[in-house]
Design a binder for these strands. Structure first.
Length: 219
DNA sequence: AACCAGGAGACAT
DNA sequence: ATGTCTCATGGT
């Protein structure tokens, strides 16, 4: 089955997703770090804390002391390490001069720059590139691996870069790649939450005709 | 009451 | 290059 076919089925079933759920590019960046291996609802609580403290700015996060920041981040889990990572990111972001100078970089240069921040790995970097900078990178996450390996379209043991290139190459000829990659990743997350968790819930799954996992829970 | 959630880094091998 | 640990809250 082609990647385009999976996309069409997901879109027809779930509709447009309107991602990323954030009001500004900087909020996307913060959410990208806080969402590492964490349920999104918990991320929202932490971001609400930052907003309530008027601290959802790179300056505020860079300047506040560790314990205060960690307390705001508490609901999103890993609050000590995420406080460090967020501070790392904000110090770097301010040192670069903020959004505009970074936005002037090429896709490749920007990705390399964002990845240089300690605490920003490949998925977090690609969240930031796609959803904050509108660059055509395909985000790979645990859901993507799970769904497409269950469909038999990828090997589960493939590394991040291998998978990213596979998706980007498979969708190379599509028009409006940024909008497509944006919507595709969001649809993957919505689909995983409803039907493709660790223990699959295949009843009503729009991909079940082609998914071997349906045998686990006949639907 | 285990299991899971929109990962990444440090470290050893 | 690849495998194992750690980090931690909140919902199911």
């Amino acid at each position: 089955m082609r990647l385009q076919t999976v996309y069409r089925r997901l879109f027809d079933h779930y509709g447009p997703q309107q991602w990323w759920p954030a009001e500004t590019p900087f909020e996307v960046m913060v959410g990208a770090v806080l969402s590492q291996n964490t349920a999104w609802g918990n991320v929202e609580r932490a971001i609400a804390n930052l907003k309530a403290a008027s601290a959802l700015t790179p300056e505020a996060i860079a300047q506040v002391d560790h314990d205060t920041l960690a307390a705001w981040l508490r609901p999103s889990g890993y609050f000590n390490i995420k406080a460090k990572r967020l501070k790392n990111y904000c110090h770097w972001y301010l040192a670069q001069g903020g959004f505009a100078p970074l936005d002037a970089l090429s896709d490749k240069a920007l990705r390399h720059a964002v990845l240089s921040v300690n605490g920003v790995g490949p998925e977090t970097a690609d969240d930031i590139l796609l959803y904050a900078f509108q660059r055509p990178v395909f985000v790979i996450d645990a859901y993507t691996r799970r769904i497409f390996s269950r469909l038999g379209l990828i090997a589960q043991e493939s590394g991040y870069e291998t998978l990213r290139r596979h998706f980007e190459a498979g969708l190379q000829r599509e028009p409006r790649r940024v909008a497509l990659f944006n919507e595709y990743h969001a649809l993957i997350v919505s689909h995983a939450k409803e039907h493709c968790r660790v223990t699959p819930r295949c009843n009503g799954c729009p991909l079940r005709r082609d998914c071997p996992a349906r045998a686990v829970e006949p639907g």
